[in-house]
């Protein structure tokens, strides 16, 4: 099928992008990599849209150390995430996660900001942001705010973003020397969205475990984390997943199978954290 697009404009600056969004009175959406948006326009899942192309805005680019955190511009493409030396050094979770996303010809175009705004419950990067306790920097015409990743993802393809807001960057706490970052997922074919995945970060504050593909949004396994962080056993943590997760059945996998895979992944991720 063919996309139905009512109009296109390339933003020349962030200010111009806000003007365009405002002039469209809620009828416009931003397009970054287009790797989710154009697919849904072609499928006519999205309504006839006005598009504001933000792909050329320098304000949304860059991978830098900034005031003690790693700042990733919203336009950082998955392919860049996989390659960037600063990411490998300070947030290796994302270096591991990027190659799990889709295929080379999609990673060359898809962006971090687009992936977070899209909020697919089976996507890797939203769960990574929660595991890393990242903050999402959002701007609108007259305002700027930081949203903790925990509070950003609200449900199926739904986020805390309000009309007229654009993600400009994410801030990620730096990995300390002894910290461990591990992401694992199970898919039927390479490049598919995960049936179940788990992003884990271990630091002096304890372990953070963010699951994806088990709910309408990425979820922290709070019970399992509490057990592990108070010296409990892996088996007790696995049992706690029963209450932490409430997966649903869909054509890809039954709820019961997802529960099984979640337990398998917990053991593997914890083993990787100890061995790495």
């Amino acid at each position: 099928m063919k996309a139905s697009v009512a109009g296109y404009a390339r933003a020349q600056s962030l200010g111009h992008a806000f003007d365009l969004l405002q002039s469209a009175q809620g009828e416009a959406v931003v397009i970054a990599g287009g790797q989710s948006l154009v697919a849904s326009l072609n499928l006519r899942l999205s309504e006839e849209a006005l598009l504001v192309d933000i792909r050329h805005l320098p304000e949304l680019r860059g991978v830098v150390l900034h005031e003690g955190v790693l700042r990733l511009g919203a336009l950082t493409r998955h392919a860049e995430l996989a390659q960037a030396p600063l990411v490998a050094e300070h947030a290796p979770l994302l270096t591991q996660a990027a190659p799990l996303i889709a295929h080379a010809a999609i990673r060359s175009r898809g962006t971090l900001g687009g992936s977070l705004a899209n909020a697919d419950p089976a996507a890797e990067l939203p769960a990574c942001m929660i595991a890393l306790a990242a903050e999402i920097l959002v701007r609108s015409a007259g305002n700027e705010r930081r949203i903790p990743a925990d509070a950003f993802f609200e449900g199926l393809f739904t986020t805390a973003l309000e009309e007229g807001e654009i993600i400009v960057a994410v801030d990620i706490p730096l990995k300390a020397a002894g910290d461990r970052h591990v992401i694992r997922e199970l898919t039927r074919r390479s490049g598919d969205y995960a049936i179940v995945g788990l992003a884990g970060v271990k630091s002096v504050d304890g372990v953070r475990l963010a699951y994806f593909g088990v709910s309408d949004k990425p979820v922290l396994a709070a019970g399992a984390m509490t057990i592990l962080n108070s010296g409990g056993s892996i088996e007790d943590a696995v049992s706690a997943l029963q209450d932490d997760l409430d997966p649903e059945s869909d054509p890809h996998a039954s709820a019961e199978y997802r529960r099984h895979l979640a337990a398998v992944l917990l053991r593997r991720v914890l083993a990787d954290m100890t061995n790495s």
Partner: peptide, 29 residues
Amino acid sequence: CEHGVCGACTLQIDGEIVRGCLILAAQMD
């Protein structure tokens, strides 16, 4: 497929392989 799944549209833009069906011609200036 025209939604990014099959790869039949793969070509090169600005030095990298991409899905031709997931990029609008309007973006190609």
